[in-house]
Design a protein around this nucleic acid. Structure first.
Lengths: 143, 143
DNA sequence: CTACATCCTCAAGTCACTAGAGGAGCAAGC
DNA sequence: GCTTGCTCCTCTAGTGACTTGAGGATGTAG
């Protein structure tokens, strides 16, 4: 008497879009579920949990390959969690770096926007700073 | 007596990789330069400036289409710079939002990593928080 | 003259999806 | 039973901003 859901229901329950669920199956992140007579996918609670895990991991910015590792760790609960810890730590470092670099961007964009006197392009700080990297204080920034 | 550079030299001078320069030409961001007898591209100072402008803009996270607009504005200095200002302002808003969302991620990752007792996977905070979004404090985060 | 670096074009691959075409299955109302 | 309309199926191609690779031509230093 297990509950089974159609793909649309799992999608609703987990917040993962229908084509994305099929995509995850295609790349082997989600096991191919059993089908009905009419060839429709049927999911259960465990599949929904796995999808929630995946969605949350993606929201935290983990790559698909990292999620693959994380999922395989979850499947073997007796193992040491050192690897999961390492992946999370690496991501934390990335996030910190990104924040630092975005703050530099923020400062520079603010300077550009504030410096704009709403006149002609020839005297526009926005264009000027873009054209001459030397006028930029943050030479190390990246998107 | 104008200086001309080979593509490799412009690449070095501007920090834009050689295939990327050719790609920019292909999508019409950079005008097709004159060629030598041996069919090699020859660039001058103005091309290098344009590439620097592009690189800096990309570093600030502007999309190619926005850069197209910014470049066309630069080409017509007599015009009002309102549009450039609007593009920069929009980008500033994006950057601010991204910083906010990344800070939420940072907090959650920190909680995961700190909570990890380096034991078995079955009791690992990292895995647990990923599996259960309810344990997450920031339900609105995105990459 | 021979290495070797640099250049050329064109096609395909990357990541994580998203969009669209064209068709089949299913539940509800008449 | 029949029609309407929703959900589902597969498959292919598109997105952005490049990167990679094959296969070949050109330029330069020793």
């Amino acid at each position: 008497m297990n509950h089974v859901f159609a793909i649309g229901k799992v999608s609703e329950a987990t917040g993962v879009k229908v084509p994305t669920i099929r995509y995850y199956e295609q790349i082997g992140l989600l096991p191919p579920p059993p089908r009905t007579e009419g060839n429709r996918r049927t999911y259960d609670r465990k599949d929904a949990d796995r999808l929630t895990f995946i969605r949350h991991s993606r929201e935290l910015g983990f790559e698909i390959d990292q999620i693959r590792t994380l999922l395989s760790l979850q499947d073997r609960p007796g193992q040491s969690c050192g690897e999961a810890d390492a992946i999370a730590k690496a991501r934390l470092v990335e996030v910190k770096e990104k924040i630092t670099s975005l703050k530099a961007l923020e400062a520079e964009l603010e300077r550009m926007v504030e410096g704009c006197s709403h006149g002609r392009v020839e005297s526009c700080q926005v264009i000027e700073i873009l054209a001459d990297h030397g006028k930029c204080k943050h030479h190390q920034h990246d998107a």
